[in-house]
């Protein structure tokens, strides 16, 4: 083995050069992820400049003609711009407002279950949908929502073609999102709750507190900081509407509510090969997200000492 391995066990207070040499193996380990990250994460960041250029592959990033804000102007004046903005914001806002409280309520209930085997079954089943591909979820949705013999229409005795109704799209998107991830969202809260000192429950019991009172006075205060953190984190990605589900559930007839920026970026960039334009639209979306992230992080670090960036 390398002699420097011995030296690393010596007491601290060595020079910087020495400490770097002692850790050469660690830097070697880091080298691979660093190189991959530079190539596939940082070079694309450098490539963002094509949003301000008329990108031609033959001329390269910096060699293509500079066009200023041309692509952004084109996007802002596109006929569907207003619709896409509205749909993107509303879809994520509704998702956030609905899917945030449900895991909290669920985990408060699950945590107080006293039958351990049952508790375990509940957790296992609730996590299951998280492990299913969006493709499969959307396939199930298409089957369930079919106007002829779909489960939903069978249960309600109706024959509505839900995926052609733009008024139904947001509900479908949000509800299926809750179905898939509410259970998984419980994990972090259940972990927090399992760390509560049991003597608190004992004391509450001695005081004659009912289960409901124990939830309100012991569990809820214990969850609050984590809940605030989770809320802030999801608020910071308000413009991150998942491309996959929208794209798979979109039909020509529900576009009034299903047309979102992420799908537009894909269509313009990959399908139409308008590289510069698509990059500009994507950058606009990322910029809003970053601003939101900084704002909420500022508010949160002021409000509750929580700092996550």
């Amino acid at each position: 083995m390398n002699p420097s391995g011995n030296a690393s066990a010596l007491p601290r207070g060595k020079g910087l050069g020495r400490r770097i040499r002692d850790n050469w193996q660690l830097y070697l380990l880091l080298l691979i992820p660093v190189v991959i990250t530079v190539i596939y994460k940082y070079i694309p960041m450098y490539g963002i400049q094509i949003a301000f250029r008329d990108f031609k592959a033959t001329r390269g990033y910096a060699g293509s003609k500079f066009v200023g804000l041309k692509w952004f102007e084109r996007f802002f004046t596109a006929p569907t711009f207003g619709r896409m903005m509205k749909n993107t914001v509303l879809l994520s806002l509704y998702s956030l407002l609905w899917s945030f409280p449900i895991p909290i309520i669920l985990s408060l209930c699950i945590n107080q279950l006293r039958f351990n085997r049952y508790k375990r079954v509940v957790q296992t089943v609730l996590y299951a949908p998280h492990f299913i591909s969006t493709m499969v979820i959307c396939g199930m949705l298409r089957i369930f929502l079919s106007p002829s013999g779909g489960l939903v229409n069978l249960l309600f005795g109706s024959s509505i073609d839900f995926l052609t109704q733009s008024s139904a799209f947001r509900t479908i998107y949000v509800a299926s999102g809750i179905w898939q991830d509410a259970g998984w969202g419980c994990i972090i809260y259940l972990a927090t709750l399992s760390n509560i000192d049991t003597s608190l429950y004992e004391a509450a019991k001695v005081d004659g507190a009912s289960v409901f009172q124990r939830i309100m006075n012991v569990d809820v205060p214990a969850l609050l900081p984590m809940a605030i953190l989770m809320f802030i984190m999801s608020a910071g990605s308000l413009m991150n509407v998942g491309f996959e589900k929208v794209w798979l559930l979109q039909t020509d007839l529900n576009k009034a509510t299903s047309d979102v920026i992420a799908v537009y970026v894909y269509q313009q960039g990959i399908e139409n090969a308008k590289y510069s334009y698509s990059t500009a639209v994507g950058l606009f979306n990322t910029a809003i997200n970053l601003i939101l992230l900084f704002v909420v992080n500022k508010i949160s670090s002021k409000a509750s000492d929580v700092d996550f960036v």
């Binding site: 070079i43 694309p44 490539g47 094509i50 590289y275 990059t279 970053l290």
Partner: peptide
């Protein structure tokens, strides 16, 4: 928190 986005990544690939 920040990335190149769809197309700049696609171009590098």
């Amino acid at each position: 928190y920040f990335g190149g986005g769809l197309i700049p990544t696609f171009l590098v690939v």
